[in-house]
Amino acid sequence: MIDPADIAAITEQLGRPPRGMIEISSRCPSGHPNGVKTEPRLPDGTPFPTLYYLTCPRLTGAIGTLEASGLMAEMTQRLSEDAELAAAYRAAHESYLAEREAIGHVEEIDGISAGGMPDRVKCLHVLVGHSLAKGPGVNPLGDEAVRLLGDYWGHSACAPADPA
């Protein structure tokens, strides 16, 4: 059961009610939800490959800034040059697929994860969502993006300037 206060917070963050939400997958240091875990098929029947969906506008805005910096192209290039990084990223892809499949099989997205995994970086939002949900060590490029984000919540109206 998801706390009604969390549902209200996410609805405010998104500007609409959340769809297909299973649980809160991550929270910012203030305790507010910043990501959710979703069903692989939305209630209207739409296949939805994004298992971890970020909801915090401050977080998604900061990730958009990283994306605009050219980071995704640089990460994709590194995947072609660094076999160890590529293997770890492929393992993140396989983990993502296994976790989503355990929730339910959706033929249309079978074998397709999200964010460009396993061969490229297409969406840092997905990779960051995966890293925030699972913790460090699962998605190496998501972990890197999380580190680059720093304290994105620091001047947010929902969080104190010093979350410690």
Rank of each mutant, 00 (worst) to 15 (best):
M117G: 09
N139P: 06
K134G: 02
E74P: 05
D143C: 08
D119H: 15
L132P: 03
A87N: 11
F48A: 09
L51N: 05
E81V: 02
T76S: 15
L124I: 06
P49K: 07
F48Q: 09
Y52H: 12
R58F: 03
G137W: 04
S80G: 15
T60Q: 01
H105K: 14
E74Q: 15
L51A: 08
L71P: 00
T55K: 04
N139F: 01
G142N: 09
H130V: 01
M117S: 08
G137V: 05
P140D: 04
A133W: 05
L51H: 10
P140I: 01
V138S: 02
L141V: 05
E74C: 04
T76M: 04
A73C: 06
V106N: 14
L127E: 09
M75H: 13
E107S: 14
A86I: 03
M75Y: 15
M117V: 06
D82I: 10
G70Q: 03
A68L: 02
Y89T: 14
P136G: 13
A73I: 04
M75Q: 15
G135T: 08
K134I: 00
P118S: 06
G111K: 01
T76R: 04
A88G: 10
F48P: 04
T60A: 00
G142I: 01
Y89W: 14
S80C: 07
L79E: 07
T50Y: 03
Y89L: 08
A91I: 00
H125L: 06
V138W: 03
Y53G: 07
A68W: 00
T65G: 10
Q77K: 15
D143N: 10
H125I: 03
R90I: 01
A88E: 10
V128D: 05
I63F: 02
R100Q: 04
G115W: 12
S113K: 05
G135Y: 05
V126R: 08
A102W: 00
A102G: 11
T65H: 11
H105P: 10
G61C: 07
L54M: 12
A88V: 00
A62F: 12
V106S: 15
D82G: 12
A83G: 13
A92K: 02
S113F: 07
G111L: 01
G135M: 07
V138L: 11
E81R: 14
D110P: 02
A98C: 09
L97R: 14
M72S: 13
G70K: 00
E67P: 06
R78T: 11
L66E: 04
L141C: 07
A98Q: 15
S95M: 08
H125V: 04
F48E: 05
R120Y: 07
K122S: 11
D119M: 14
